[in-house]
Amino acid sequence: MQRVNMIMAESPGLITICLLGYLLSAECTVFLDHENANKILNRPKRYNSGKLEEFVQGNLERECMEEKCSFEEAREVFENTERTTEFWKQYVDGDQCESNPCLNGGSCKDDINSYECWCPFGFEGKNCELDVTCNIKNGRCEQFCKNSADNKVVCSCTEGYRLAENQKSCEPAVPFPCGRVSVSQTSKLTRAETVFPDVDYVNSTEAETILDNITQSTQSFNDFTRVVGGEDAKPGQFPWQVVLNGKVDAFCGGSIVNEKWIVTAAHCVETGVKITVVAGEHNIEETEHTEQKRNVIRIIPHHNYNAAINKYNHDIALLELDEPLVLNSYVTPICIADKEYTNIFLKFGSGYVSGWGRVFHKGRSALVLQYLRVPLVDRATCLRSTKFTIYNNMFCAGFHEGGRDSCQGDSGGPHVTEVEGTSFLTGIISWGEECAMKGKYGIYTKVSRYVNWIKEKTKLT
């Protein structure tokens, strides 16, 4: 034993070699072989497995989906700052455009905790909710729209109204504003409101030439003092309507412009014939205590009207009353817009006519005020429907199939267009061939041609 100890002390290297040989010859039971080890760690190889990531292109799944990435790591994937920024906006807080917040056709661009709407022409605001041009839906104005110097929408209202708090709607500024039905039992019968379409306001006024200088022999019209197929109006439903009495009662109609003036057809009036105007009328054979009678003290036909040349060209006249009318729910003026808007309103496509005229061709006159909704007829169809001249200051309205029309005794009465609950004068009943005849239409004086003249002559002093 002493000898062994001496050998170990003198030859430590020998001992180490012996131990190493023993270990190498022993069977290893701690580690699995290569094949079995792979069965336990069965993990798919990654895209760049075996390579240094710093030297390969980034992978979106590896960089940002398996674990949260930084902007720089995302930049490695896209290799483009702009594309990385677009991805980053949604990656950080989701897609803010998912709810489609942009209105009126706006395009949404996502941002971090926010979004941006790219608005089409005519709109602005956070969600493109603000109209900035009158060309689109009248700028959301209830009545009139004008573009300011910086191309912003400025709404306005006709006389007797003021802008509401929203700067879009119009509200009454006087007790009985024009064009409004205020009798409670008839307010439910107000005709369907007309909503502004998209309009090209630059070209809204037709490029028409008034044929002022045409000389033409007097034409022989049949029954051209021209509501057939209409309905009984309720008291106060058309408070701007008046009836004219002269040699015979209810020979023509008219509309209240203001307390002192009536507008009617020029062919209705004769110099030297006494005319009485009755406002607030409903049943011409009954006294309903809503009527107001006034005498006409002055007749002003349009300066281009000449019955000797043509009885229905420039067929418009103004009547001055001896005493002002007292405005109330049964006696209310009709609204008159400017030339541009009167023309736009007419193009809405349908209007209402009213009167006490004959209820059928050569038949009896109506006792109760009649009204009828009539569609506008395109000019080409209008011209083809008659052998008589249709001037540019006239328009056609009615039904091709016949059966409904204005008729004798309705002449001078109103053709009105309702705009968001307020009625505007767009025409004056003038003439036609018979009444409600198939293929024939009622012919009306186009008020847009005469609004400046009306307003100039009827100013209240």
Score class of each variant (00 low, 15 high):
R3L: 13
V4F: 13
N5F: 13
M6G: 13
I7P: 11
I7G: 14
E10Y: 05
E10G: 14
L14Q: 03
I17Y: 12
L24N: 03
T29K: 09
T29S: 12
V30L: 14
F31H: 08
F31N: 15
D33Y: 04
H34M: 10
H34L: 07
H34P: 11
E35N: 13
K39I: 09
R43H: 09
R43D: 10
K45W: 09
R46F: 07
R46Y: 10
Y47G: 15
Y47S: 13
K51R: 11
L52T: 15
F55H: 15
F55S: 15
N59W: 04
L60V: 15
L60N: 15
L60R: 15
M65T: 15
E66D: 06
E66A: 06
E66V: 05
S70M: 10
E76P: 15
V77W: 06
E79Y: 11
W88C: 05
K89M: 08
Y91W: 04
Y91K: 15
D93M: 05
Q96I: 05
P101Q: 02
G106W: 00
C108V: 01
N113I: 04
N113L: 06
W118Y: 11
W118K: 15
F121D: 13
E124G: 05
N127V: 05
C128G: 00
D131Y: 12
C134F: 02
C134G: 02
K137P: 04
K137V: 06
N138S: 03
N138E: 03
F144M: 04
C145Q: 01
C145V: 00
N147T: 14
A149G: 06
V153A: 09
V154C: 05
C157K: 00
C157Y: 01
T158G: 04
G160Q: 03
R162W: 05
E165P: 14
E165M: 11
Q167P: 03
E171K: 10
A173R: 09
P175R: 11
P175Y: 05
F176K: 04
P177E: 01
C178W: 02
V181I: 11
S184P: 09
T186Q: 13
S187G: 10
K188L: 07
K188Y: 13
K188R: 08
L189W: 10
A192Q: 08
E193M: 14
T194W: 12
N203W: 08
A207F: 08
E208M: 08
L211V: 12
I214N: 09
I214K: 12
S217M: 11
D223V: 08
T225M: 08
V228Y: 08
E231L: 08
D232K: 10
A233Q: 06
G236K: 07
Q237A: 08
F238K: 03
F238W: 09
P239G: 02
W240Q: 00
W240R: 02
Q241R: 07
Q241L: 14
V243S: 12
K247S: 10
D249K: 14
F251I: 11
F251K: 09
S255V: 11
S255R: 00
S255M: 03
I256E: 00
K260V: 04
V263C: 02
A265N: 03
H267V: 02
C268S: 00
V269M: 08
T271M: 11
T271H: 13
V273F: 08
I275E: 01
T276Y: 05
V277S: 00
V278G: 03
E285P: 10
E286I: 11
E286F: 10
E288F: 05
E288T: 07
R294A: 02
I299P: 02
P301W: 08
H302Q: 03
H302S: 03
N306P: 02
A307K: 11
N310S: 13
K311D: 03
Y312E: 02
N313Y: 11
H314C: 03
I316P: 00
E320Q: 06
E323R: 07
I334Y: 01
D338S: 10
K339Y: 12
T342R: 00
N343T: 10
N343H: 07
L346D: 02
S350V: 10
V353D: 01
S354H: 05
G355A: 14
W356N: 03
G357Y: 14
V359K: 14
V359Y: 12
H361S: 12
H361A: 06
H361G: 10
G363P: 11
S365I: 11
V368F: 06
V368T: 14
L369S: 13
Q370C: 05
Q370K: 10
V377N: 02
L383V: 08
T386E: 07
T386R: 09
T386A: 12
K387E: 11
K387L: 06
F388L: 14
T389L: 12
N393R: 03
N393I: 01
N393D: 09
M394D: 01
A397R: 01
G402V: 15
G409E: 06
S411Q: 14
G412C: 06
G413I: 09
G413D: 05
P414N: 10
E418V: 09
G421E: 06
T422G: 01
F424W: 13
L425H: 02
I428F: 05
I428K: 02
W431H: 13
W431Y: 13
A436V: 05
K438P: 14
Y441I: 11
G442S: 10
K446T: 03
S448A: 14
R449I: 05
R449H: 15
V451W: 03
I454T: 00
I454S: 00
K455V: 07
E456G: 09
K457S: 11
K457H: 14
L460V: 04
